[in-house]
Amino acid sequence: MGLLARLKGVRTARQQAGDAAEDRALHYLAAQGMRLVERNFRCRGGEIDLIMQSGETLIFVEVRQRTGDSHGDAAASITPRKQARILLAAQIFLQRYREPPPCRIDVISIDGARLQWLRNAIQA
C-alpha cells in the first residue's frame, strides 16, 4: 500500500479481515453477557484487540484468525513475543486504576468458520 493510501485511511484487505474477525469476536462475547470497555487499545510496546468486562472482571482479548491450517491453528500463532506485548499493554492499561480489578487474558481463535474462546489463555 502506498503512502497516499495510508494517509487517506484506506485499509488493506488483511486489515479489513482483521476488523471483521474482531467484530465477530465482539458480537460473540457481547452475546455471552460481556460489555465492551475499549477496542484496539494501543500503547508503546503493545496492543489489545478488545477489553471486555464481565461483572467486576476485566478481560483482555486477543483475536486471532487463520483461513487455512497450513501453518497451524490461529491460537498457535501467538508467539511468546506477542504474549509479552499483550501483557505489557494490559499492565499499562491497568495503570488507570487506583486498585486494579481482577483480570485475565483470553484468546478468541477463528479458524475458517470455527470460533473458539480460550479463557485465561495467557498468564503472567
Rank of each mutant, 00 (worst) to 15 (best):
A5C: 00
A5K: 07
L7H: 12
K8S: 08
K8N: 06
K8Y: 05
G9D: 08
G9K: 06
R11Q: 09
T12S: 15
A13H: 01
R14N: 12
R14L: 10
R14V: 10
Q15D: 05
E22M: 08
L26H: 11
H27Q: 11
H27V: 04
V37S: 04
N40A: 15
N40E: 15
N40Q: 15
R42C: 01
R42L: 08
R42T: 13
R42D: 10
G45L: 11
G45S: 09
I48Y: 06
I48S: 01
L50C: 05
I51G: 12
Q53L: 02
E56S: 12
L58M: 13
Q65E: 11
Q65I: 01
H71Q: 14
G72V: 03
D73N: 08
A76N: 01
I78D: 14
P80K: 12
R81C: 00
R85N: 10
I86H: 14
A89H: 13
A89W: 13
A90K: 14
Q91K: 15
F93P: 02
F93A: 02
Q95A: 13
Q95R: 15
R96L: 05
Y97V: 09
P100H: 04
C103L: 05
C103S: 13
I105A: 07
V107S: 03
S109G: 05
A113K: 12
R114V: 07
R114S: 03
R114L: 11
L115P: 02
Q116K: 06
L118F: 02
R119M: 01
A121H: 04
A121S: 02
Q123M: 03
